[in-house]
Design a protein around this nucleic acid. Structure first.
Length: 271
DNA sequence: ACTTCGACCTGTTGGC
DNA sequence: TGCCAACAGGTCGAAG
């Protein structure tokens, strides 16, 4: 479900309810997520105040003086703020309850998500330390991407979906960005020139930025923390449109498998 | 060091 | 209507 825009939409949705609020309870109904939810989470977190809710790539970081909760939504996770005491449904695995009466609830049917706890700077955590730059930051520019891609034989699509290269570009926005940049998804990353990387950087920024503005993409069931869907799917140019007409050239959108992921592109517009 | 691929889960969809 | 296979927005870590 969530790529960077959906995670950012979630962050913005939950922050006002929990920033500056004190945790007074933690309920773990299902500790078996991607990694076990640490048993010490409850003891560590109770009594702490969540100072800030940050995002790094697709990870959400709830920071307190004692440590940081690292959250990942995986493929099917979502966070909602409900009133403390609201009855839990089938896949509501973890609640963090606040003294102000709010309950931050993680739902994740496929359980690819994660809830972890670290007492050190979150950036140094194993899962975060190798991450590439934020796509919307200044560090992510043409030079960076061009240099990082030299001698790389992977497809450009797999390359931009690699979180060590750049974070937050998932399967939907990878296809969309490559369409906008006019680059065929199968092209080897190392064989793409500077000028085209300039276009690609711009496209990634634009696509992600626009998607955040629209509250993310809702294909099946993504809703923000208030239960509202995102609207970016109305702007999707190629994702999920195999067999349909390209909105730019009227040719047929095609799909292919790249790195075990479905990939959409227009063979006319993308070379 | 790079690349590919299996693995982790459940729910939904589409074909027969 | 029912059953079953295929597929889904992520990504780690092993193996080549």
């Amino acid at each position: 479900m969530p790529e960077l825009p959906e995670v950012e939409t979630t962050r913005r949705g939950i922050a006002p309810y929990i920033e500056g609020e004190r945790v007074c309870g933690v309920v773990v109904r299902q500790p078996r997520l991607r990694w076990p939810v640490p048993a010490r989470l409850k003891a560590a977190l109770c009594g702490q105040t969540i100072d800030t809710v940050r995002r790094r790539g697709k990870y959400l970081l709830l920071e307190s003086a004692a440590g940081t909760v690292i959250l990942h939504l995986g493929m099917s996770g979502s966070l909602h703020v409900v009133e403390a005491g609201t009855s839990a449904e089938k896949h509501d695995h973890v609640d963090i309850i606040f003294a102000n009466g709010c309950c931050l609830r993680l739902r994740d049917p496929r359980r690819f998500g994660a809830v972890l706890w670290t007492t050190r700077a979150a950036e140094t955590h194993k899962l975060l330390q190798g991450l590439g730059p934020e796509p919307l930051s200044d560090v992510f520019d043409t030079d960076y991407l061009f240099t990082a891609s030299r001698a790389r034989r992977v497809s450009i699509k797999a390359f931009i979906m690699d979180s060590k290269v750049v974070v937050g570009v998932g399967n939907i926005y990878a296809s969309e960005s490559l369409f906008m940049a006019g680059i065929h998804p199968q092209t080897a990353a190392g064989r793409i020139g500077r000028v085209r990387y300039e276009r690609l950087v711009r496209a990634i920024r634009q696509v992600l930025g626009k998607a955040i503005e629209q509250g993310g993409t809702t294909l099946r069931d993504f809703t923000n923390s208030e239960g509202k869907p995102g609207y970016f799917q109305q702007q999707l140019q190629v994702y999920g449109r195999a067999g349909e007409a390209c909105l730019s050239c009227n040719g047929r959108i095609r799909s292919l498998q790249l790195g075990q992921r479905n990939t959409f592109y227009c063979p006319q517009c993308q070379r």
